[in-house]
């Protein structure tokens, strides 16, 4: 999967939880889930569960800790898919 394909998939997963349209339209690797997209911290767990379902992977506590931006989400998914 290319980076663009991965970002496109993540964008689809994140879409239902965003509260800031402009930052979502310009979503890139540096986009922060909370600071930029204003996603509620209670919904970060939904994003984590949706990522697990979409890629058929399981995230551990260590992975969850870093799940605050697109870049980290990409790194975590890529690492899990390589396992």
């Amino acid at each position: 999967m290319t980076n663009d394909e991965l970002i496109a998939k993540l964008k689809g997963i994140i879409a239902p939880y965003i509260q800031e349209e402009a930052a979502f339209t310009n979503l890139n690797e540096d986009t922060d889930f909370v600071k930029d997209l204003k996603i509620n911290s209670a919904n970060l767990v939904d994003i984590i569960l949706d990522i697990e379902d979409e890629f058929d992977i399981r995230l551990e506590n260590d992975d969850m800790e870093k799940m605050l931006d697109v870049k980290s989400a990409m790194a975590i998914v890529n690492a899990k898919l390589e396992d």
Binding site: A42, N43, D46, L49, E52
Partner: peptide, 23 residues
């Protein structure tokens, strides 16, 4: 603060693994 109505709307706590991830 948690707005109870908002939490009802935004989260489905009964989805699989939801509780396991947080508690």
């Amino acid at each position: 603060i948690v707005d109870i109505a908002q939490a009802k709307k935004d989260s489905n706590w009964q989805r699989p693994r939801f509780l396991d991830k947080l508690f």
